[in-house]
Amino acid sequence: METEQKRFDSGDLPALRRILCEQGLLSRPDGSASWIQGDTSVLVGIYGPTEVKVSKEIYDKATFEVLLKPKIGLPGVYERSREQMIKKTCEAVVLGTLHPRSSITIVIQVVTDAGSLLSSCLNATCMGLVDAGLPMNSLFCGVTCALDADGNITLDPAMKQEKEARAVLTFAIDSAEKKILMSNTKGSCSVEELQQCIAASQRAADTIFQFYRDSAHRKYSKW
């Protein structure tokens, strides 16, 4: 099932790049999704809840494992830190207490990186979790903002914009209260700029959540 939306406008801000999503495209994982945001493309497969290694077992909740595979080479320290962020974001939204002593494994494969990779990974993960049918207390989405030298905000920057930017901020936002689940910054910015970026991301999050809704709606209305 594929959903596509051509253009998003979020108020007076420049639009997000084109989003494309396909759920359930892999047959072996319990949930899978392919997420394309502009030219950035990631593929996610989710296994779980399933058996867990005794050493990793947690008696009152599910054990999360996130594997981020780069396009080329082996995952390094950079990937580990991103994995940890995605893992902790998932732990906060998925109701892991409903599946104690079990494991939920999320495998993210980067297909193309053309900017805003972390937010694309977050979005793909969320769509994958929805496809896997895991109980969650809210959905989440990732939004990347780039601040240029003049302090202008570009939402969902491409690779070139990211490189030229003075600061790049990535947030994960939950769908229930539009609060910040995760935050990661590169470069330095002032407090006001941070707050502006948060506000812009929250507005952009609305369009992404609308996309999630439309996509789910289309998927289930066919049946």
């Binding site: 940890q84 974001t89 906060a92 901020l169 910040i180 689940l181 990661n184």
Partner: peptide
């Protein structure tokens, strides 16, 4: 100035 706002997941 902010050099890092690091929040690796967790509650909102």
């Amino acid at each position: 100035k902010l050099c890092a706002v690091h929040k690796p997941g967790g509650s909102t």
